[in-house]
Amino acid sequence: MTSTNWVDLSRDPETGIESLRAHFEGHAYDPHWHDTYAIGLTEQGVQRFHLGRTRHESTPGKVILLEPGDVHDGHGPTPEGFTYRLLYIDPQWLHQRLGGLFEQRPDHYRMAFQDAMSSDVRLAHAIGTAFDVMHHGDFRITRQAALDTLLERLTCHVQWRRRPRPSPAMPLLAAKTREFLHAHIADDIGMDDVGRALGCDRFRITRAFKAAFGMSPHAYLVQLRLVGARRLLARGETPAEVAAATGFADQSHLGRWFRRAYAMTPAYYRNRCSKLPD
């Protein structure tokens, strides 16, 4: 991370909501995904990102709404870069709280956003208020009130989709590859291991996986390990312990990938989430 780029992160101990404010110039981050909902807004500059094959550009005041698993990147196309703030919200927490605002919600449905971006001024204000009180640890009742207002405004931008089921649109080969990667998150596997396990040529596996998920099996596995690393670091485990548990060669190996993905060190993330010293 250059001296002109910076990241400020905090975590609310009651809800587990992470609040992040950051500034980047030029390339910000490679394609990646989160296991949380990401709800935020652009403060300054132009924030360009790709979601799937669609390019978006967010300018000051615009709202960004990302679902768990949405593969996206980040770039600042203008010289002054861009500044943004995001709330990372656990899917189960949001599903439970927001679901209570709907009188009828079948259990086999999941919450989804209608669009990845919005110009809703009231929603942008609600996000900004919730971010401020969460990020700076305001009174508990103040944090709850701000979140309630945010959730109420979000009801104008969500829909309920059926939970995903196996579909011909996702080749069985890609689905089985993903299952294999999840089962071997901490193992030092290669594509030849995947090919032997599935009885298929590794080049065909890679093509099928990219078509289904928008990234290679290798990139997906790295993201999977980083998501696991974030969970363990937030619980207070040391970077060395986390590296061993999530398949990285050592603490330095974890650090290189973590900085590349999140523009911060594992130690910084652990400290901001758990309040434990580095």
Rank of each mutant, 00 (worst) to 15 (best):
F131M: 15
S58Q: 09
V71R: 08
D132S: 12
I127G: 15
A124D: 13
G45K: 00
G61K: 09
L94Q: 10
S118M: 15
R48A: 09
V71Y: 03
R48S: 09
V121I: 02
V71I: 08
Q44A: 01
P68E: 07
A126H: 09
T129D: 14
R48V: 02
P106I: 01
H95Y: 04
D115R: 06
V46H: 14
D107L: 02
I127W: 13
V133D: 04
Q92H: 05
E103V: 12
F49G: 11
V46G: 01
M117A: 09
H56K: 01
L66W: 07
H95W: 04
Q104A: 06
A130T: 12
E67F: 12
E80L: 14
R97I: 00
S119R: 13
V46D: 05
L123C: 13
Q92D: 04
I127T: 15
L94N: 06
T78S: 12
G76C: 02
I127C: 10
H72A: 01
V71T: 11
R53V: 02
F49L: 13
G52H: 02
W93R: 07
H108W: 00
H72Y: 03
A112R: 11
H75R: 03
P77Q: 07
Q92E: 08
G100A: 07
L86W: 08
R48Q: 11
R55F: 04
H95K: 09
E67Q: 11
H125T: 15
F49N: 14
F131A: 11
G100F: 04
A116S: 05
Q96T: 01
K62S: 11
K62L: 09
F102T: 11
Q92R: 08
F102L: 13
